[in-house]
Amino acid sequence: MGILSITALSKKFNDSYAVKNMDYQFTPHQCIALIGPNGAGKTTTLRMIAGLLKPTSGNIIFEQNKNIDRRTLIGYLPQHPVFYPWMTGSEFLTYSGQLGGLSKSTSRKRCEELLDIVGIIDVKDKRISSYSGGMKQRLGIAQAMVHKPKLLMLDEPVSSLDPIGRREVLTLMEVLKKEMTILFSTHILSDADEISDELILLRNGEIIESGKIKELRQKYQTTKITLQFAERQTFYEEKIATLANVRNTLVEKDSIQVIANDITKARNEILQRAVQEDWPLLTFRLEQASLEEMFMKAVNHS
């Protein structure tokens, strides 16, 4: 069973759509990345799900517990979180926990735990007004998950963090995934690639591609073989082109690109021939398209 489904979700600002006709089913314990360039509609989508923005049309339905306040199920980190500057980090987090329904003592305990996890335990008793951007980001992540929500939504959780912080937070998300569904936005593909199970590609407010990351890879997989010969490149190119499992060949300056119908068979075939006929082979390389290429491809397709 899913945790949340959105159907035909749209948001219009003035006359243009920030989000248009979005459908998606969220499955529990998955990490879903919302990817798209600036202005794609990521923040708008998250704010609507968080209940901070009214959709122009469409539905957001939380599957379980229909009669409880849906806010108990969600945790949310805004893109630019703002706090009470006169509070200390630990005061704010405890307060957040209490608002989330924890008792004061539970909230205190959880707060210590979380401050340690997100790595700002050293400054917990300093006023938030003196925090750096990264510290605020970390505090923001902590407050989002303080009441153990079922759905954790993070709007660009690692964008203002240093490389070490990024690593820490990504690792943390990997752990959290076991307890909750995580929906996070980013425009850095490698982050998404690293920890997410599903991808939603957004452009101009529309989902242009979505699904399990593994399936998407397969779908857009263009595995190719790159070959280099010491001599007579075109001669060999013609030979390879006649092979049964080769779809297409392409001669570049000093290499041959081979697109195969079946990559394993094509590989075996080429290698066999190379040995039998003693080809002057310099390079033999199997390449898999990166997520980056896949992204570009999906964007270009539509």
Binding site: A50, G51, L52, D69, R71, T72, I74, G75, Y76, P78, H80, P81, V82, F83, Y84, S96, L99, G100, G101, G140, Q143, H147
Partner: peptide
């Protein structure tokens, strides 16, 4: 105005 209300009101208050 500051936006801190967002953090308060996404909690079940």
């Amino acid at each position: 105005k500051s936006g801190v209300l967002d953090l308060v009101l996404v909690k079940p208050v």
